[in-house]
Design a protein around this nucleic acid. Structure first.
Lengths: 190, 190, 190, 190
DNA sequence: AATGAATGAGACTTCATTCAT
DNA sequence: AATGAATGAAGTCTCATTCAT
């Protein structure tokens, strides 16, 4: 049995994710990635045919993670479900931004790239549908202001996860504040 | 005397801004920029000593524009002022993202770069102070829920401008909805 | 593991030195250098971060060589020592000219460049001091005409090494003639 | 009658000569040349078809100057003639170095370039012949040590003009010292 | 399987020269 | 005649990827 792996595929993707978020899609370089890993740069090609394939795989893995957690959410109480979803998204740092890079990847760089992108695309739709489904129900149940157009409600909800946490308030608390603000607004009630 | 300009400095910066927003800081290439302009790539160097100087100038121009409009806002009524500021920020598409690239620029690439970055930095602080000042006043006047930590209120307000306008709702209307949601929340009042 | 080197650092510097002397500092191009070497131009960057770093390293190597030989000279008999030094300088073709390029190099191009330039500078001073020390002694010992200003004696001695050897007289012999002329002059004694 | 010339051909060549000596052949740039002149860079092309033609013209002019002065020297007393020639060469700063650049110029860049280079070449031979003729005579007249090979005597004599004048001794005096050293040597006579 | 050197496409930038005014 | 903007060839350097060990 040959040598030990100097790093696993999973370790590779962990670092890749971190660096993607730090430097952005076009700022992401295999050179700097490899300095954070124990082995040599060329070893990366044992796992992936090229850079794009790797990024696609990275996205897929993040997406799988979120998707699984999101599908485990109990949707009985739609408001509670939304609260939990926000929590999940917030925990999965940079998830939104990462997915945004998907459109920059050229799917024809390898079959596996195409597959992964397709998966991410599908999962994205699934997640959006889940949120929208919950929001529609919330509206029907009179929990959400029916005057506001649904896309606006959705957009703001999705966008919450990008809110800069300037004071580094601990995540569970931060999540609560965001949800509360989304629901009740920043203003005073009279 | 001399030839006519094939493009003006302003046209150059317009395209640069668009491409920066499309491709991100490191994805921004003079080659593709020049294909969108009449004339040769090297002509760009008539206006700027190098790429970084150009990006800095681009940021500065956007910033000057926003700063001027923001300082023209009447702050007598703080809620009204905030509403107008949101409008201004939304109109200046990508403003926030663009400014984020500032920290990637090496100020030593030219004296003019350093000056422009300094200006952007200062203006950024000025704008942030304006918002915070208004929010503090709003709180003192009892227009904002005092239970919510101020950084959370500020963060969410700033982040509004990144909300994806999925349905392409016209800007003035979109701006109203966002402001309303920020103030009153998406939920129903009982 | 890994491939074999197509050329060593030393081979690289040898060719660099030759081309620097042929084409001068600004006429020195990596493109023509690489055509004299096996392999691609970009391979040069395995050894040096940039052109200037390479030139600095080249100078340092030449200087180290000369310095070592010069310091091995026995200074007991100052005239004999001077004769040997002239020999050393003549052997190290182009040494003087090469060192003259030092001031064109920007030391901030890399830390290693700065170090190498500093070394060259120091060594230059050391060598000049050695010559001057010997000349002063030669004067004190009555071997050199005290009427002639020392800087003139020094300047002419230093400049001997640039004398064009039009007939390609073999080096040891050439060196002897030059030393003899410096000491006794071209004229006849009466 | 059209406009005044913003600079004359002669002014142009003066500055060109200075910059050639400062920066060397390959370091010489029309861009920096033009900043030292009152007019625009492109105006240079009113006088010369291209850079090489200009450099050739520059050399020719320097050469004409030296040649004329050298031919005015009275050769009755050969030692006196040599002394005066040394004076002429020293006065024409950088003359030697400048001529050395001739071989770098491509004569086919224009007919006038070819003519000028041809002239310089011829004049160079003429000057060398003059020196050699004088040295041969000096030898025959017993003024020069017949043991030393003539090329060595010639080479050292020619090379005197490059001696670095470290103390900036005034030219006439400096010239005397150099000539004296060349003739009598730096050593003491016993 | 892992390595590290080699590679070439492509980016930024410079500069002599041309061109329209 | 003079100008200053425009140009493209050519140079330096980077980086994803390949190759030999």
């Amino acid at each position: 049995m040959g040598r030990r792996h100097v790093f696993t595929r999973s370790e590779l993707l962990d670092h890749a994710k971190r660096m993607l978020l730090e430097h952005g899609y076009e700022g992401f370089q295999l050179k700097s990635l490899s300095t954070r890993l124990p082995g040599a740069r060329s070893t990366i090609y044992q796992y992936f045919a090229n850079k794009e394939e790797m990024i696609a795989a990275c996205m897929r893995r993040v997406m799988e993670d979120v998707l699984q957690k999101a599908q485990a959410v109990d949707e009985t109480d739609c408001m509670e479900a939304l609260r939990q979803l926000l929590n999940i998204y917030l925990r999965e740092a940079g998830f939104h931004q990462l997915i945004g890079y998907a459109r920059k990847i050229n799917p024809s760089s390898s079959p596996s790239t195409a597959r992964d992108l397709e998966f991410v695309e599908q999962a994205h739709v699934t997640l959006k549908n889940q949120i929208e489904r919950l929001l529609v129900r919330a509206r029907e149940e009179g929990r959400i202001n029916p005057d506001i157009p649904l896309p606006a409600v959705t957009g703001v909800f999705f966008n919450l996860i990008n809110t800069p946490n300037l004071m580094d308030i601990p995540l569970p608390e931060w999540s609560e504040w965001l949800f509360k603000m989304w629901l009740e607004g920043a203003g005073t009630r009279n």
